[in-house]
Structure formats: structure tokens, C-alpha cells
Amino acid sequence: MKTLNLYEAKTHLSSLVDEAEAGAEIVISKNGKPKAKLVPFEPPAPKQPRKPAGVLGVVWIADDFDEPDPELIALFEGDHEDGEEQ
């Protein structure tokens, strides 16, 4: 593992990024104390669709599960079928 002070790292950042991309790990220190590590970037794994756990016997989730419910919104906003507020 390569260790550089902050000034050297600023001066050679572009080449250090190339080294990290190739698999190297570089420690950047300030006043002799390690402060950061430059490592290769690993893209996050793609998100998988949600699957029900089956704990409550749920084996299917509707496509619109997360969509707002107009009836529930009407209750919160005070809209009633009879046109009067309570």
C-alpha cells in the first residue's frame, strides 16, 4: 500500500487515480497521520425488485402498491362525499 502526503497527492492526483483504477490502494496523510484512502471504485449492484417475505402470508404485491390512495388523501384533506367538513 502506497502512502503519500497531501501535497504529493494533490500534485499527482490524476496518476494516482489511474493507479487506483488498476487496483492499487493509496493512503493520503496529513502531518504524518493517515487521513484518507484512495481505492478502486466498485459500482453498486443493480437493485432487485421487491419480493414479499411471506411472513404474513403475502405472496403478491400490486404494481401500484406505493401509489397514493385517493380515498385516503381525501380523508386527510377533509373532503367528504356529502360535501361537508366534520
Rank of each mutant, 00 (worst) to 15 (best):
D79N: 13
K51E: 11
G83A: 08
P46F: 05
E77N: 12
I61F: 07
V55N: 06
G23S: 05
G32H: 10
D64G: 07
E8N: 01
K51M: 08
E21C: 11
A45D: 11
A74W: 01
L6G: 00
K2P: 02
A53I: 02
K51T: 11
G32D: 11
S15D: 07
Y7L: 03
D66H: 02
F65T: 06
Q86M: 06
K51R: 10
E85Q: 05
V55I: 07
V59A: 10
T11L: 02
V17S: 12
A9F: 00
V58K: 06
A62F: 05
T11A: 01
T11C: 00
F41S: 13
A62C: 04
F65G: 03
P52T: 03
M1V: 06
W60N: 10
D82K: 08
E67Q: 08
E8I: 00
A53Y: 04
L16I: 08
P68K: 13
A9R: 00
E71K: 12
E77A: 12
N5F: 00
Y7F: 04
P46Q: 05
P44W: 13
G23P: 02
L16Q: 11
E21G: 15
I26M: 04
L75Q: 10
D69G: 04
D63H: 10
E25Y: 04
Q86C: 02
G23W: 01
D69S: 12
A45F: 07
L56Y: 12
P52S: 04
P40R: 15
V55C: 02
T3C: 08
